[in-house]
Amino acid sequence: MTGSTVLRARGLTRQYGRDTGLVRAVDEVDLDVPTGQVLAIMGPSGCGKSTLLHLLGGLQRPTDGEIWLADHRIDTMSERALARLRRQHIGFVFQSFHLMDELTAVENVELAALLAGQSPGRARKRAMHLLDRVGLADRARHLPSALSGGQRQRVAVARALSNDPLVVLADEPTGNLDSAATLEVLRLFEELRTAGQTLVVVTHDARIAAVADRVITMRDGAFADDSRLVNNATATGTVYGGWR
Rank of each mutant, 00 (worst) to 15 (best):
V134L: 09
Q151G: 07
Q197A: 08
V33I: 14
L130Q: 07
D32V: 13
Q95C: 04
E191W: 05
R8C: 06
A25D: 04
D101W: 10
T76A: 14
G175L: 09
R8M: 07
R86P: 00
L115N: 00
T104N: 01
D32A: 15
L69E: 03
H129G: 09
A224V: 09
R18P: 02
E191K: 14
P34C: 10
A123R: 05
A212I: 01
V155D: 01
G46N: 11
P120V: 05
G149Y: 08
P165I: 13
S78W: 12
G48R: 03
P44V: 15
F223D: 01
Q153E: 02
H142P: 09
L55F: 07
I216N: 00
L55R: 06
D75N: 14
T174D: 02
Y240L: 14
R10H: 10
H204N: 06
T20P: 13
G21Q: 14
L143Q: 11
E28Q: 15
D178N: 09
R14W: 02
P165H: 15
L22Y: 13
G91Y: 13
E184T: 12
A116D: 12
C47P: 01
Q88T: 12
D178T: 09
A156I: 13
G43Y: 05
F94M: 08
G117F: 11
R73C: 04
W68N: 05
T238W: 01
L59A: 09
L136M: 12
G36M: 05
L56Y: 06
L59Q: 08
W68T: 09
E191Y: 06
R10P: 01
T20D: 15
D225K: 00
G149W: 06
L188N: 05
M42F: 07
V23R: 02
G43I: 07
L143F: 15
L31S: 01
K125G: 13
S145Q: 15
Q15G: 04
N108Q: 07
F189N: 00
L192G: 05
A170Y: 08
R126K: 15
G43M: 04
G91T: 12
A224D: 11
R14A: 11
A156H: 03
T236K: 00
A180G: 05
T198A: 03
G196Y: 04
A160R: 04
V200E: 01
P120L: 06
P62D: 13
I67S: 10
V200A: 03
L188Y: 09
G242E: 03
D164G: 07
H142L: 12
Q15P: 00
P34D: 06
H142W: 08
L56F: 10
R80W: 10
T182S: 15
T51P: 02
L31F: 05
L99W: 03
P44G: 05
T35P: 00
N108S: 06
D132A: 15
G196T: 09
V185F: 11
E172P: 01
G149S: 09
T234A: 10
G43W: 07
M42H: 02
G237I: 06
L12N: 04
L69K: 03
I208E: 00
A83H: 05
G21N: 14
A83I: 11
S119A: 15
F97N: 02
T236I: 04
